[in-house]
Computed example of a mutant assay.
Amino acid sequence: MAIADNIWWTRKARIQTEKRLLSNARHAQLLLLWYSFVSVCASIYYLRFNTQSGYANVVWVMFSVLVLCVSGFISGLSYKERAAIVKDGYESMNSLYRKSQKGNADFDEITKEYEQILNLSENHADIDYQSALCVTYLNHNCPRDPEKGLDRRPTLYVWLAVIKWFFIRSLFILMLYSLPLLIFLAMKVSGVSPE
């Protein structure tokens, strides 16, 4: 039954991987849209209100070049394609898990098939497995009952790692969204922008 448990938990971790990759794709697209919008607005603002400031124009041209470079970098990461491959893998694991639950299951064959499915896509990150532990524990009907419950439970370390990851990720995303506004404010405070 250990192979069935491994398949089940790997599937849960890969589901978290897909969610993380799709979230990254969504934020990347929103950030590119936001940065492009702010860049255009800043260019119009400085053309209209501060035509003498050479620094502001240089800063916003550099920002526009950054947006262009980041868009190429993000397309190279191919988040959506990777998420689709991971999804295909965990869907294949679902049928393999059902096969492993049968009384007459050939565990050697199941193990080989499991290893083949694992090799089809990238491995999940540690945080994906830890998130899967926490989410499953919170959503399970009887997480504390050893007879009906889960074979694995999140430890205090896992809870803290997931909370820390969520906090750092949220802070990083907030910083990325506020970067153009911080640049504008820094220019305003430094006297590059008009009063």
Rank of each mutant, 00 (worst) to 15 (best):
G103N: 14
F166W: 13
R11S: 12
C69N: 07
E18M: 04
L96S: 11
T51G: 14
I44C: 04
C142K: 07
D126Y: 03
K19M: 10
L31E: 03
Y129G: 03
V189K: 05
E122P: 03
M62E: 00
Q101I: 06
T136Y: 08
V59L: 02
C142F: 01
S190N: 12
D88A: 13
C41L: 15
A4I: 07
K188Q: 15
Y114N: 04
S170Q: 13
R26Y: 13
L68A: 05
V38Y: 02
W9L: 08
K99Y: 11
A83T: 07
T136G: 09
T155C: 10
F167R: 11
G191K: 07
C142D: 06
T51C: 12
S100D: 05
M62T: 06
E113M: 01
V61L: 13
L120H: 02
L156T: 15
L138D: 07
N24W: 10
A42N: 06
C41W: 03
R153V: 13
S178C: 08
G191W: 03
Q130R: 13
Y35I: 04
A186T: 12
Y79N: 09
A4C: 10
Y55A: 11
R11C: 10
G72R: 00
L118W: 00
E18T: 01
F107Q: 02
I15R: 02
T10V: 01
L22P: 00
K164V: 03
L33D: 05
V65D: 05
R153M: 06
Y177D: 00
F167D: 05
N104E: 15
L120A: 08
Y46Q: 05
R98C: 04
L32G: 05
L77G: 02
L118R: 09
N6V: 04
